[in-house]
Computed example of a mutant assay.
Amino acid sequence: MQRLWNALHYSLAGLHAAFTCEDAFRQEALLATLLIPASFFLPVNGVGRALMIASVLLVLIVELLNSAIEAVVDRISLDRHPLSKRAKDIGSAAVFLSLANVLITWICILFG
């Protein structure tokens, strides 16, 4: 039980750190607070709603991972390095694809 309690504490600390230190995470969290409740007012079935919500939550998950990558890269060195740029660009691309996934998923479900 202690391990689970500690894991919960670390997870909440990570969410707090992301929300207080990462502008992109705050913006995407705001998007989630708008889109997730909106999904309950749209005329879609349960599976469609679940996919819509999952696509939004995926953005938050990917943004957390991207922020973690950026923090580690910055911790290693603030010097410009091609591998650091590549790591940060790939993380950014993952966030972009997750946002595109939200758009495609919602369009397919609402207009498909």
Score class of each variant (00 low, 15 high):
Gln27Ile: 12
Ile76Met: 07
Leu83Gly: 06
Phe41Gly: 15
Thr33Ser: 15
Leu83Gln: 08
Ser39Tyr: 02
Leu42Thr: 04
Ser67Tyr: 15
Asp74Ile: 09
Arg26Trp: 14
Val59Arg: 01
Ile76Phe: 01
Ala38Met: 13
Ile53Ser: 06
Asp74Leu: 15
Leu57Asp: 06
Leu30Phe: 13
Ser92Lys: 02
Val47Asn: 02
Ala32Trp: 04
Phe41Arg: 05
Arg75Met: 11
Phe41Thr: 04
Val62His: 11
Ile53Glu: 04
Val59Asp: 00
Arg26Met: 15
Ala68Lys: 01
Gly48Glu: 05
Ala54Ile: 03
Ser77Phe: 15
Gly91Phe: 11
Lys88Asn: 13
Leu58Trp: 04
Ser77Pro: 08
Ala68Glu: 09
Ala68Val: 09
Leu65Trp: 08
Glu70Gln: 12
Ala87Thr: 07
Asp74Met: 11
Ile69Trp: 05
Glu63Ala: 06
Leu60Phe: 06
Leu64Phe: 05
Leu51His: 09
Arg75Ser: 07
Ser77Asn: 14
Ile90Arg: 07
Asn66Cys: 11
Met52Ala: 07
Val44Gln: 01
Leu65Asn: 10
Leu30Thr: 09
Glu28Asn: 12
Ile90Tyr: 07
Arg49Leu: 04
Pro37Gly: 01
Val47Arg: 03
Ile76Ala: 00
Phe41Ser: 06
Val59Thr: 01
Val47Gly: 05
Ser84Trp: 12
Glu63Tyr: 02
Phe40Glu: 00
Ile76Trp: 06
Pro43Ser: 07
Phe41Ala: 04
Val72Thr: 11
Leu78Asn: 09
Leu64Val: 08
Val44Arg: 05
Asn45Lys: 04
Ile76Cys: 08
Ile69Lys: 00
Leu51Glu: 10
Ala50Met: 07
Ala54Asp: 12
Val44Met: 13
Ser67Met: 15
Val59Phe: 02
Leu65Tyr: 08
Glu28Leu: 14
Ala68Thr: 08
Lys85Leu: 14
Ala68Tyr: 06
Glu70Pro: 00
Ile53Gln: 01
Ile90Val: 06
Leu78Met: 07
Asn45Asp: 03
Val47His: 01
Ala54Leu: 09
Ile69Phe: 14
Met52Thr: 05
Glu28Trp: 09
Phe25Trp: 12
Val62Gly: 06
Ser77Ile: 15
